[in-house]
Structure formats: C-alpha cells, structure tokens
Simulated assay, not measured.
Amino acid sequence: MTFFMRTARADDLQTLYEMAKLTGGGFTNLPPDRKALAAKLERTEQALSRTDESIQDELILMVLENAQTGQVRGTCQIFSMVGQSWPFYSYRLGVLTQHSRELGRTFRAQMLSLTTDLEGSTEVGGLFLHPRERAEGLGLLLARSRYLYIRNHRARFGDQIIAELRGVIDEAGGSPFWDGLAGRFFGMSFQEADEFNAINGNQFIADLMPKTPIYTAMLTDSARAVIGLPHPNGRAAMRMLETEGFTNPGYVDIFDGGPTMVGQIDSLRTIAQARDVTLSALHDKSGDKMLIATGRLADYRCTYGFVREGEDGAISLDADSAALLGLEPGQTFSMAGRA
C-alpha cells in the first residue's frame, strides 16, 4: 500500500479544486470554487491548531496521498457539530393516518416535514476518490480513516453522527426532487441553489421555504420517485455506511432528496473494534490486513498495514506501512480489522 490519509494543508488547494471539478454537481461539500475550498482549508488549520479538548464547531478536511508520487487522489471531511453557524435543515419523511367513519376508509398520507432534528450531530461527508483510483479498497480507507480520527480525538465529538448521501441527479445536472418541490418556491435552478448553498450556507432556506408539512402526493411523479434514493454512484457508499452501523431513519436532503444516514459514534464498527497497541517489531509484507493510524491533529495519518499478533500479544507490522506512518518499535498506534 503506497496510499495514506493525512489532514489537509493550504498547499492542497489546487489539487482539491481539480478534484472538485470532477464531481459532476450536487456535491455540496466539495464545490469547484477556490474561495470556498480555501475557507475549508483555513477552518481545518484552525481546528488542528487548537489544543484544548472540547466540542466546537469545526471542520477537519483530510486527503488521500500517494506516498510514491506525492499526488493527492482523494478527500473526505468531518464536521464536528453541525447546525451552529446556521440551522441544519432536513426533511423528515413520515405518514399521517386519518380514518373516516362515514366512508369506512383509512387514509395514509406520506408527508415531508422540515426539521432541525439533526443539529449538533457530527457529520462525515465530502468523500471523493479520483476516478482512476477506485480500486484496492481506497474508498474504504477514505471513509474509515475518519472514524479512527474521531476515536483518537473522542473528546472533540458528540454522540450522534450523520452522513448525507447525494440524491439522484439527471443527465442535465438537475435534480428531479428540487424541480418538483423547492424550485417552485425559490425560482432558481438546482445548480444555482446548490452552488449558492455550498458557498454561502443554507440560511436562505429558512427565509423562503414553507414551514408547513408537504404532502408527497402533491409533488410530481419524478420528484416522488427519487425521495430518499442515493445517486447511483452513491449506492456503494450507502452499503459501506450500513456495514459501519448507520441506519436510514427517514431524513432526506432538502436540495436533492438524498437519504441522510444516522449512527451512534461509539457503536460504529470501526470505532468499536479499534484498539491501541504497541509496536514490538517490523516484518515483511504478510499478516492480517488492518486499518492502522497514528498521530494527533495535524500529525494524524492512516493507512492499511499487515499486522501479526503473537501468542504473547506482541504486535509486529510490515516495514512499508510503518514507514508510511513514521512508526518505530516501542511506539503506539491504533488498529481496526478491515471491514
């Protein structure tokens, strides 16, 4: 394995911008806008420079680097506590049941209710892997490196964690959900609203969106058909989240109708399985393939490594992975089984 995860730096701006242009739209956390990306890098630098252990409204942007070439080939983000700078809106999908004695019938109406239920949650998002690198389990490395980061900085995060999946986007780059619902109130295309939200936040939703529940039967067929569905390219990500321990309780994104997955941090598979160990020796590339991480804040690194555990509990690691993380015998690192 020549790839490893690290926290992002200011000099990653150009690479992040080039990757953002490959996302295809609807990717709010990775906008193709230099100013917005620079602001994310600045927020990350501020978070990594803070030494006190408390929960604050912070962003940690991480990147996937090829150690041989120095190229950055993927990225992901952690938001420590959403809904602090402006409300964190979602739709909650529910059902209203009513019964008519006169007709002898029961009516069940599916409804979308605007809510801020998820405020205060930690959010993982912004995961993007360069199309040429979608092999060797690098998507899992991107995703799970965030969970080990959270575990190793546990005092900086709460109990609930969420992940918003991009909804269905049509071939023209539009959103059937937006066109059938919010677009009618805002007079803007999905691309315009998505770009505005990525750069300025979604406070305009609070100003203009109707607060009353919306009956889905009143939406267009195309809008109803995509409620709660991930983008086809996001189905694998949804399966990864489910494997990790996230569930789908019926929250959907207000822009594209994609599902919002919800979990409890301490119950996530990576975090529950992880343990801290001391490196006793180095070996050639053989053993059990594990997710391994070391370092705090700006020094955090994560990769796959080959681990051997002796009958006496002694832990050895392949020399290449140890070199990627700067590990030497006698030092400690975190490890979790490969999902």
Rank of each mutant, 00 (worst) to 15 (best):
G83D: 03
Q84K: 15
A193C: 07
F128M: 03
G173W: 08
H130Q: 07
E164L: 04
S189N: 10
R134V: 10
A109P: 05
R144G: 01
A182D: 02
V95C: 14
P176Q: 07
Y215K: 12
F185E: 10
S85R: 14
I169N: 00
M209Y: 11
A217G: 11
Y91H: 07
T220I: 08
H130E: 07
M188G: 04
T212K: 11
F185P: 03
L93G: 03
T106V: 11
R92M: 08
L165C: 06
F157E: 00
D221H: 15
N202R: 11
R151N: 06
G158A: 10
R105Q: 15
P176W: 01
L93W: 05
S222P: 05
E195L: 11
T97Y: 11
F128E: 01
H130G: 04
T122I: 05
Y89I: 03
N197D: 12
T212D: 10
I162W: 00
G158R: 12
Q160S: 12
L96I: 15
R132N: 15
R101D: 13
A109D: 13
D179A: 07
R146E: 02
P87I: 05
R166I: 02
P213V: 05
M209V: 05
T116E: 14
F190H: 02
Y91T: 01
L140E: 06
L138D: 03
S90C: 12
N152W: 05
A135W: 13
A135H: 14
A155Q: 15
R134L: 09
G137Q: 03
H130L: 06
E119W: 07
V124K: 00
D194Y: 01
T216K: 07
N197G: 11
N202Q: 15
I162A: 00
P87A: 13
P213N: 08
Y89V: 02
S100M: 11
R132D: 13
S121N: 10
F88A: 03
Y149I: 05
S145F: 01
T106R: 13
Q203G: 09
I199R: 15
P213A: 09
R105N: 11
R101N: 15
G183I: 01
F204R: 05
T115E: 08
I162Y: 01
A217D: 15
N152D: 11
M81N: 06
R146V: 02
F196V: 06
D207E: 15
Q110N: 12
L219V: 05
G158H: 08
W178I: 02
L165S: 00
S222Y: 04
G183K: 00
T115L: 09
P210F: 08
I150Q: 00
P210D: 08
F186V: 06
Q191I: 09
L114W: 07
G173L: 08
Q160H: 09
S175C: 04
A172Y: 10
T116C: 15
F196I: 06
G173E: 08
L219D: 01
G125A: 09
W86S: 10
R146F: 05
N200K: 13
A163Q: 00
G174M: 06
A143C: 09
F190S: 01
E136Q: 12
M81Q: 11
